[in-house]
């Protein structure tokens, strides 16, 4: 372990999510084709690639949000701890609680900060005020937002700044105590300081939960990713430990993308 040549090689080797020969199409347009990917427990798996490469569709398949789009068709297999998601082996509500998701643009509900955070737990059956309060505080702390909002939890979530809203959405996902956190370009449109705060939060979280991070920002992938997968036009081109993908990519297309020749 000490001699592990790459950072990605040393983190948890147990498989959390496995994607086998996954294809996703919306109507007649194919957005993902034959994707195989193994996501290791308690690691940050970054997914990079230009727009239209299917990154988001992959993410939305991992919590089955993709199948709710009209006309969507998903083939292949996705397993979470060995359970086949596409075969319905994990009930939908339970899956969404175990696999939290944060969207590209912050999407707080038009309610107070507190109400946003307890929305999920309440649905999951947490009723006691003390339990909810504790969840609110701990998830806000994990998302590095507690100090900024602790005195105004009853203020509308829409009054927060963009970066705060995004961290609120992360906290909201964390309030369900998920095992996996899916993030879809969580820092697009945020300033560097907010981005830094979110990245710090993610790094800390990855000690306990599995994180899949879709990002347009290759530098961000390099900063926080343990492993990085490169997607292009609906296919996965390369998946490697972060250090190796950025220093010695094995596929020329990865190299072209990273060196800015396209994308």
């Amino acid at each position: 372990m000490i001699d592990a040549p790459y950072r990605g090689a040393e983190v948890g080797e147990r498989t959390k999510i496995e994607v086998v020969d996954l294809s996703v199409r919306y109507g007649s347009s194919v957005v993902l084709r034959g994707v195989n990917l193994r996501i290791r427990e308690r690691s940050i798996h970054a997914i990079i690639g230009p727009a239209g490469s299917g990154k988001t569709s992959l993410l939305r398949t991992l919590n089955l949000l993709a199948i709710e789009v009209d006309g969507a068709r998903v083939d292949g297999a996705v397993t979470l701890d060995g359970k086949h998601l596409l075969l319905g082996e994990v009930p939908l509500a339970q899956l969404r609680r175990r696999v939290g998701m944060v969207f590209a643009s912050p999407q707080p509900l038009p309610r107070s900060i507190y109400e946003n955070l307890v929305f999920g737990p309440r649905l999951a059956g947490v009723r006691k005020r003390v339990d909810l309060d504790a969840l609110v505080e701990s998830s806000l702390r994990q998302a590095q937002l507690w100090d900024e909002v602790k005195d105004r939890l009853d203020v509308s979530a829409l009054k927060l700044s963009g970066g705060q809203q995004q961290r609120l959405c992360i906290a909201r996902a964390l309030a369900l105590q998920p095992e996996v956190l899916l993030l879809d370009e969580p820092c697009s449109g945020l300033d560097p300081i907010s981005t830094l705060k979110i990245e710090e939060a993610l790094t800390e979280l990855s000690e306990r939960i599995t994180i899949v991070l879709v990002t347009n920002n290759t530098k961000q992938a390099a900063r926080v990713g343990d492993r990085v997968a490169f997607f292009l036009l609906g296919e996965m081109v390369e998946d490697a430990p972060a250090d190796r993908l950025f220093t010695a990519p094995s596929d020329p297309r990865t190299n072209d993308y990273l060196s800015g020749r396209f994308g």
Binding site: N63, L65, E68, A93, Q94, R96, R97, G100, M101, F103, Q107, P108, L109, P110, F119, G120, L123, A124, C169, R172, A173, L176
Partner: peptide, 10 residues
């Protein structure tokens, strides 16, 4: 709003 809610298990 809908997706956020669905993603939280509603």
């Amino acid at each position: 709003y809908r997706e956020g809610s669905r993603a939280l298990g509603a």
